[in-house]
């Protein structure tokens, strides 16, 4: 038998959130955690969580599994079970709508803020813009982000300042466009990130890298952005603080 302990909250009936433990027979096969949740939902249809692709590419089912953020659909229960127990919580730091469903408005607002689209004011050619394989390689490890929010919601800087610190997910995308040879707005993009909060609240504790279900490295992208900002500032002969205040 295994115990699955789930964070429960229904705003219509519950004054406070609580946790509920479901005890069930351990499945014979090593199924994914999402499948286990689907089994539980057949027993208790009131459990709420998001899911869509069930193969780790849509980013719907990010949740906190035994204290670590991850996607339920690609986490085998063999990895999730600790002492015959699995603890499931909503992604930390965002308001809870219900059970394992969080309000991602602030997360998406940061994404919108970095202008996550290619900007190039030159007239496009009749065919595609050319890009060498080497230039295209620079986008690998960046464009694959699925916006699951596992990284940003594991980041204390994002917890404290979700409205001001862009967070690892959106910074990864900021760098994805800075790194794109077809984008001509690098200077403007950097300028938009040069305040003390947007980038500089990252102190490189690597939680984002540790949890990313797609093995991406937002920390590296943030480092690149910081270097570019610093070399810009050096050119202007301005002394910058490290943003810690």
């Amino acid at each position: 038998m295994i115990d699955v302990n789930i964070y429960r909250y229904n705003p219509e009936t519950d004054k406070f959130p609580y946790t509920q433990t479901y005890t069930l027979k351990k499945p014979e096969k090593d199924i994914m955690l999402l499948e286990l949740l689907n089994i539980l939902k057949e027993q208790d249809s009131s459990i709420s969580y998001r899911r869509s692709c069930r193969e780790g590419v849509c980013g719907s089912d990010g949740m906190n599994i035994n204290g670590k953020n991850g996607l339920a659909c690609i986490t085998p229960i063999s990895q999730a079970i600790k002492n015959n127990k699995i603890e499931l919580r909503p992604l930390p730091g965002l308001p809870v709508i219900r059970d394992l469903v969080v309000d991602m408005t602030e997360f998406y607002a940061q994404y919108d803020k970095i202008k996550p689209f290619l900007q190039n004011e030159t007239e496009p050619p009749a065919q595609e813009r050319l890009q060498s394989p080497a230039e295209r390689d620079k986008l690998d490890g960046l464009y694959e982000c699925i916006l699951c929010a596992c990284c940003s919601t594991s980041c204390p800087s994002f917890w404290w300042n979700p409205d001001k610190f862009v967070g690892p997910a959106a910074l990864l995308q900021a760098y994805r466009f800075i790194a794109d040879s077809r984008d001509t707005k690098t200077a403007e993009r950097l300028e938009g990130l040069s305040d003390p909060f947007s980038v500089y609240r990252c102190h490189g504790i690597m939680n984002c890298v540790n949890v990313c279900p797609k093995d991406l490295n937002p920390n590296h992208a943030i480092g690149e952005i910081k270097s570019m900002l610093l070399s810009d500032k050096k050119k202007e002969n301005i002394i910058v603080s490290d943003g810690v205040s």
Binding site: L118, N120, A126, Q127, L130, S132, R136, D180
Partner: peptide, 23 residues
């Protein structure tokens, strides 16, 4: 089709590339 695909490229779709830089 070609018009629609080139539009996607202009929008920023990160297509893989051949050595000559084409899609």
């Amino acid at each position: 089709g070609p018009k629609a695909v080139f539009e996607l490229e202009h929008m920023g779709l990160p297509f893989s590339r051949f050595e000559n830089g084409r899609i």
